[in-house]
Computed example of a mutant assay.
Amino acid sequence: MPRRPAPLPDSLGEVFRTRAGLERGVSRARLGASDLHAPFHGVRVRSGPAPADDPDDPFARGRRAREREWRRARAYAPLLTASAFFTGRTAAILYGLPLDPGDDLDVGVIAPARAPRGRGVRGVKVEGHLVRVRECEGLPLGSPASTWAMLGRELSVRELVVLGDAIVRIPRGRSGVPHPDARLATRAQLGSALDAGPRRGIARLRTALPLIREGSMSPLETLFRLDAADAGLPPAELDVEMRDASGRLLGISEFVYREHRVVVEIEGDHHRTSRTQWNRDLEKYAAYAAAGWEVVRVTSSHLRQGRAVELVRAALGRHR
């Protein structure tokens, strides 16, 4: 039976530099034991079982991706220099923004410091006037507005609009109450980041900024809004509290064409897989119909097939 590794000093914590372990009397052989993970050169992380995804939770995948990125960032944190910060895709995911993680951590430094290099790291040197750094859960991150601007070098215009919408949206609590103080940044702050000076991707950023709107609560909503605008549909109200004649709240909807009495609901897969969400939707749509609204339900499949705009156009035509 294999011998259990000797216990480590509690003072080392969950993440520590190998140099700190050696200074506390830990042998090099012990630093190579199977209960320690080496995500970066000179760093060790105490291994533990990864939490399993809940198959009934439609948001579990995104949440786990963010948790994995936080673990990677915290593992690299002991190697950060005084002018270093997380940026790019790494910062976006740590903020909970809708973007796929990269293979490497994005780590920036303020010039004239040298950008970090090494396995698992993509370093970038940034002029100080082009970035604002803030602390988030103990780690230095480029601000949300700075992160958006720095991603102009690699994202398309549509991706920048999706990201910008997610940054400026005003979250709602469980009861549907909006929390303006919880949004990551305003459009004005995105504009200030864009105006800070020349940078790679600035043409795409300038094209994307006027297309960003407050009220798109998911990437699917942003993509439909862009498609609808390209197709010449009239602008809709976004993230609207729907009430009946007595003022009773019937629900909150993504797109409302008030003059046409048409509501557009963008439905992710959780509307199908969650029994609670399914029942809630049925009650809401029945209440809308009783109040004289037509509901157009749009899925990701409709968007991919290019059918979403035509479904809405037809509904608007019925209610001229």
Score class of each variant (00 low, 15 high):
residue 279 N to L: 14
residue 219 P to D: 02
residue 102 G to E: 10
residue 168 V to M: 12
residue 207 T to H: 06
residue 270 H to E: 08
residue 105 L to T: 00
residue 170 I to E: 14
residue 186 T to C: 07
residue 205 L to E: 03
residue 102 G to T: 01
residue 65 A to C: 04
residue 173 G to D: 15
residue 26 V to S: 01
residue 232 G to N: 07
residue 279 N to V: 06
residue 42 G to Q: 06
residue 204 R to C: 01
residue 157 V to K: 02
residue 299 T to R: 07
residue 54 D to H: 09
residue 165 D to T: 09
residue 8 L to W: 10
residue 178 P to S: 05
residue 158 R to Y: 05
residue 311 L to V: 08
residue 207 T to M: 11
residue 15 V to N: 00
residue 39 P to I: 11
residue 61 R to N: 04
residue 260 H to T: 03
residue 242 M to L: 15
residue 238 L to T: 03
residue 205 L to V: 02
residue 35 D to L: 06
residue 277 Q to V: 06
residue 308 A to N: 03
residue 291 A to H: 09
residue 130 L to V: 08
residue 201 G to E: 08
residue 183 R to W: 14
residue 151 L to T: 02
residue 59 F to H: 14
residue 42 G to M: 11
residue 43 V to M: 03
residue 148 W to M: 06
residue 307 R to G: 04
residue 188 A to D: 15
residue 1 M to D: 09
residue 178 P to Y: 07
residue 46 R to C: 12
residue 147 T to R: 02
residue 262 V to N: 01
residue 298 V to F: 10
residue 197 G to R: 05
residue 7 P to L: 08
residue 196 A to H: 04
residue 29 A to P: 00
residue 250 L to V: 09
residue 76 Y to G: 00
residue 81 T to A: 13
residue 76 Y to C: 00
residue 77 A to R: 06
residue 118 G to R: 04
residue 24 R to C: 06
residue 95 Y to A: 01
residue 246 S to T: 14
residue 129 H to N: 11
residue 206 R to D: 05
residue 64 R to F: 02
residue 229 A to S: 03
residue 89 R to F: 15
residue 228 A to T: 07
residue 105 L to E: 01
residue 137 E to Q: 10
residue 302 H to N: 10
residue 315 A to I: 08
residue 26 V to W: 02
residue 111 A to S: 07
residue 154 E to N: 00
residue 169 R to S: 13
residue 99 L to M: 13
residue 287 A to D: 10
residue 2 P to L: 15
residue 150 M to T: 04
residue 56 D to W: 14
residue 146 S to Y: 09
residue 7 P to M: 08
residue 104 D to L: 06
residue 275 R to W: 14
residue 37 H to D: 08
residue 180 P to Q: 09
residue 192 S to F: 11
residue 14 E to G: 00
residue 126 V to W: 14
residue 309 V to C: 04
residue 254 E to I: 02
residue 263 V to H: 01
residue 177 V to H: 05
residue 105 L to H: 00
residue 161 V to F: 03
residue 280 R to M: 11
residue 251 G to E: 10
residue 61 R to S: 10
residue 40 F to V: 04
residue 260 H to C: 05
residue 112 P to I: 10
residue 268 G to L: 06
residue 242 M to S: 05
residue 114 R to W: 14
residue 234 P to W: 12
residue 231 A to W: 13
residue 303 L to P: 00
residue 125 K to T: 01
residue 232 G to H: 07
residue 132 R to S: 12
residue 99 L to G: 00
residue 99 L to K: 01
residue 83 S to N: 08
residue 63 R to F: 11
residue 11 S to D: 13
residue 255 F to V: 03
residue 155 L to Y: 05
residue 196 A to N: 01
residue 91 A to N: 05
residue 68 R to T: 06
residue 267 E to D: 13
residue 262 V to I: 12
residue 73 A to W: 00
residue 261 R to V: 04
residue 57 D to K: 02
residue 19 R to C: 04
residue 207 T to F: 02
residue 102 G to I: 02
residue 127 E to Q: 07
residue 250 L to Y: 11
residue 248 R to D: 13
residue 67 E to A: 15
residue 293 W to K: 01
residue 48 G to F: 13
residue 244 D to E: 14
residue 98 P to C: 06
residue 262 V to E: 03
residue 74 R to C: 08
residue 109 V to E: 05
residue 110 I to W: 03
residue 122 R to Y: 12
residue 126 V to H: 12
residue 120 G to C: 07
residue 240 V to K: 03
residue 304 R to D: 09
residue 75 A to R: 03
residue 62 G to F: 09
residue 298 V to P: 00
residue 254 E to A: 09
residue 118 G to M: 09
residue 141 L to A: 05
residue 27 S to N: 04
residue 269 D to R: 13
